[in-house]
Amino acid sequence: MDVSELRKNAKIKLDGHPYVVTEFQFVKPGKGQGLYKCKLKQMITGAVIDRTWRSGERLEAANVESKKMQYLYASPDGYTFMDNQSYEQVDLNEDVVGDDKHFLLDQLECDVLFYNERPVGISLPSHVVMEIIECEPGVKGDTATNVTKAATIQTGYVVQVPLFIKVGERIKIDTRNGEYVERVNS
């Protein structure tokens, strides 16, 4: 693949190992060469490295297969997922799941990624709906839409939400950046 196809969550092969792009930054002087600055996570060991490529360079895509699975529970062995057709279960350790753990709700359907038949990561739906279990009350009369407050969701993750959000309400979160999207009316 061409380096210009790099994106967050792209899977590439470097020195024979599979990596996932966890952070991605494109910079370029207007008339200069583009630079692709990436943080990469080794999909098996979880080791994180920095790499920079220049426009025009070529990369090898990692051959990662994905399978639809359901999240069951967390245990000292890690996070357990089940294939709904074969009932086969796999455990993914914390390094592999990384920050995605904040959005794992029981029975959430997501893609589990396999490299050489080994589970190496998950791919969450782009949005998840979560319930607020704790937050400060909003200040009445403040209508400025850019003002936010901290709120805790079921998984313990803390997200910035607008002031009108209350405990017990459900919100949509973008799993790619962990940000609040909108209130969900049920």
């Binding site: 910079v27 370029k28 002087p29 008339k31 200069g32 060469q33 630079l35 220049r54």
Partner: peptide, 14 residues
Amino acid sequence: WTAWFSHWSDLCLE
């Protein structure tokens, strides 16, 4: 010059 300018701009100037 283009390569060096891009490199310098990214690492030093910006």
